[in-house]
Design a protein around this nucleic acid. Structure first.
Lengths: 344, 344
DNA sequence: GAAACTTATGCAATCGATTGCATCGACTCT
DNA sequence: AGAGTCGATGCAATCGATTGCATAAGTTTC
C-alpha cells in the first residue's frame, strides 16, 4: 500500500546532479551547450530519479502542446482507421501526440476554436470538409500560416493546405475499366454531394460517360452516403429496375459491398448479372465474395504525408511555406467483381 | 494579412470585467460563489474577448490534463475502431480529450510511463494486454488507485480494473450453436494465445467440445492472429485437408472472412461444405457473402462503459472504488454462414 | 600581464490558471 | 453601539520548464 511518491521535477534532477534547473533543461534540449561532466551527471540524475518532463509546464511556457488534432467524420469507417493508423505512427515518431475528434457536433467551428486556443493542440488534420469554410477561415488563428491541413475531402476554398487523391481522374479510370470490359450501360452510386470528394467522383463518372459515348441514364444514378446500408438500399432499388445497367461504379467499397449483398438477396449475382467497381480498397475488399475490383487509395501514404506536412508547417518558420496542394494517385486493382460483358 | 492577435487570457477577461482574475476563475468553475452582478459582467467579458481557457496552464496547476490515453493493438481493425468511436464520444461528452496510442512499440512500459508522468494523460484505457504486467504494476503510479482500465483483453493479473465480455461462455455458445445444427466435427481457428482473450475463446471451444461429446482433433485447430490474412492461410490449410470438419468456430470475424475467401478459391462453399461462425459482428459481417453468423460483442457499450468507469475513477475520491470487474454479454447472431448438417 | 573573448552555468522572470488566506463591508444580535 | 457572522472579492503563492541576461572561470592575443 505504498503511496506513489510525487513524480520528480526538473528541480529534483538538478538537486541530484548538483547543478541548476537551467542546466538540466539545457542538457535535455541542446546537450552540446553543456560541459561533458555536467551532461554526464545530469543524464545519470535523470536515470536515477526517473524524471519525465512535465508536458503541461512545457506547453505553458513554449505555447506548444506537441499534439495534433485529427477530426474525422466517422472513425468507425475502416477507410479512416487505416489513415488514423498512419497518422498516429508518423506523429509519434516525431514526438507528437494525436488527439481524436469524431463527428464534430453541433457547432464544429466553436469546437475547433476551443481546441486550438486552449492550447491542447497545435495543429489540425481535418478530414471532414463539410464545414462552413467561411466561418472557419474567420478564426483569428486560421489566417496566413494556418496550422491546418485538409485531407482527403477537398475544400473548394483555396485558402487551405490540402492533401488529396485524384478523385476525378481515378473515377474516370474506373469507368474506363468498365468500358474496356465491354460495358456500355453503366450506373453509379453517388456519395453525398456536400462532400466535395463525392462530388469529384460523380463529376469524373459523368465526364467519362460522356467521353466514352455511353448512355447517361438518371434512373441508373443511385444516391448513397458512403455507408454499407446506403449501398444496400441502392442495390435493392437496382434489383427492382426493369431495365438495368450492366455495370456499376460505386463511390466507395462499403457502398459496393452493401450493394452486392442486396442484389444477391434478389437472386442476382456479381459479376454475372452486373459488374461492380468500388473505390478505396479497404481491407475486406480482397477477401469479399467476389473479391472487389476497386480504385486503391494510398491510405497509408495519405496519412503519413498529411502528418509530415502539418508538422513541417508547425515547426517551420511561419510564412516559409506556400500553400500546400498535394495530390496522390489512386491505382486500379482488378479483381473479380468486374467481368467482360458479352452482350447479356 | 492581419496577424492573429494574441489569445486572450483570464487576466484580459478580468480587466474587461473590472474584477480580479480570481473572480473570473470562480465564475467559471463555481458560479454560485460569486455575486450575480460580477457573474454577469464576467460572462459578458468572456463573450466579448472570446476567451478560452488555456488547458496547459490549467493542467499544470491542477495536475490533471482532462485527457485519457487509449492504447490499442491495432487501430486498423474495424473492431477497435467502433470502440474508439464510443470512447471518443463518451469522453468528450464529459469534457475529456482522447489521445491515441497504437501498437506500443519496443518498450511499451516506458512509453506509458512517459505519457502518465508527463501529465499528458490522466488515465489509460488499455486494449492491449500483451504487456508485461509485472513491469507495469511496478510503476509508482500504478498502485492502489490506478488510473487504468484494461478493456476487452483481460489480464490474468488481478490487480487491474477490467471491462471484458464473456469470451469463455460466448465461445461455448458459439460451439453449441454448431451442435444444434447437427455438426459433430468441429474445428477452430485460434487467435494468438498470448492474448488472454484469444485464450479464453480457445478454452471455451475446448470446454464445449468436451461437454458436447464432440470429437477433438488437433489437425482441426488452425493458428491465426485475428487478421484476415491469417484466416485466409487457415482456410487454405483447411482446403488441403483430406478429412475435414463440417463446421468451424473462428476466433473473430476477420479470421472467418479470410477463411471463407480462401476455401472459395478452392471451390468449397460456405455453408454448403462447411459452416462457419465468427466472433464480434463487425460491420461487414451482415453484408458479407454469405452473411456471417457470429457472436456479437456490444462494442459501443464496451467503449462507453470502460470510459465511464475510467473517468469515474479519475474524478472519484481515491480508494473509494474497489477493484472494478465488469463483464458484458455477447449475443448469438444467426445468419447464413452456418447451416444444418445433413450427414454430409 | 592585462585586455578581449569564449564558454559554462546560474539567477530570476515568465507562461496562465487556481486557491488558501486575508480583508472588507453589510448585516444581525444582544 | 459594539461584537460577531457571513458572503464576496482580492492578493499572492504556486504548479514546472524555459531562456535572456549576468557572471564567473578559463583561454587567447599582443
Amino acid at each position: 500500500m505504498v503511496l506513489a511518491r510525487k513524480t520528480p521535477t526538473i528541480q529534483d534532477v538538478a538537486r541530484f546532479a548538483k547543478v541548476s534547473a537551467a542546466t538540466v533543461s539545457r542538457v535535455l534540449s541542446s546537450p552540446e551547450r553543456v560541459s561533458a561532466s555536467a551532461r554526464e551527471r545530469v543524464t545519470e540524475a535523470v536515470r536515477a530519479t526517473g524524471y519525465t518532463i512535465n508536458q503541461a509546464a512545457r506547453s505553458l511556457r513554449m505555447r506548444a502542446a506537441k499534439t495534433i488534432l485529427i477530426a474525422l467524420p466517422n472513425i468507425g469507417n475502416p477507410f479512416y482507421s487505416t489513415i488514423l493508423d498512419a497518422v498516429v505512427n508518423e506523429a509519434s515518431s516525431r514526438g507528437y501526440g494525436v488527439l481524436v475528434a469524431n463527428r464534430l457536433g453541433e457547432n464544429p467551428t466553436e469546437w475547433l476554436r476551443d481546441y486550438f486556443f486552449s492550447n491542447r493542440a497545435d495543429g489540425l488534420l481535418l478530414f471532414d470538409a463539410s464545414l462552413d469554410t467561411e466561418e472557419l477561415s474567420n478564426l483569428p488563428l486560421v489566417r496566413n500560416t494556418l496550422p491546418l491541413v485538409v485531407v482527403c475531402d477537398e475544400l473548394l476554398d483555396p485558402r487551405f493546405h490540402t492533401v488529396t487523391t485524384d478523385n476525378f481522374e481515378a473515377s474516370r479510370r474506373a469507368v474506363r475499366h468498365l468500358y474496356e470490359l465491354g460495358h456500355t450501360r453503366i450506373g453509379h452510386v453517388r456519395g453525398r454531394l456536400v462532400k466535395n470528394l463525392a462530388n469529384q467522383r460523380w463529376l469524373g463518372f459523368q465526364a467519362e460517360i460522356q467521353a466514352g459515348g455511353g448512355e447517361f441514364r438518371p434512373d441508373w444514378i443511385f444516391q448513397g452516403d458512403h455507408s454499407m446500408p446506403s449501398g444496400y438500399a441502392a442495390g435493392q432499388q437496382f434489383a427492382r429496375l426493369s431495365d438495368r445497367p450492366t455495370a456499376i461504379f460505386a463511390s466507395n467499397d462499403e457502398t459496393a459491398i452493401g450493394f452486392i449483398s442486396a442484389i444477391r438477396e434478389h437472386g442476382l449475382d456479381c459479376p454475372r448479372h452486373v459488374s461492380i467497381i468500388g473505390f478505396d480498397d479497404i481491407a475486406v475488399a480482397r477477401h469479399y465474395a467476389p473479391p472487389l475490383t476497386t480504385m486503391r487509395q494510398p491510405r497509408e501514404q495519405i496519412g503519413r504525408v498529411a502528418t509530415e506536412a502539418l508538422i513541417d508547417i508547425l515547426e517551420g518558420t511561419p510564412f516559409e511555406h506556400d500553400l500546400l496542394r498535394i495530390v496522390l494517385n489512386s491505382e486500379l486493382i482488378v479483381r473479380s467483381s468486374t467481368a467482360r460483358w458479352n452482350g447479356g
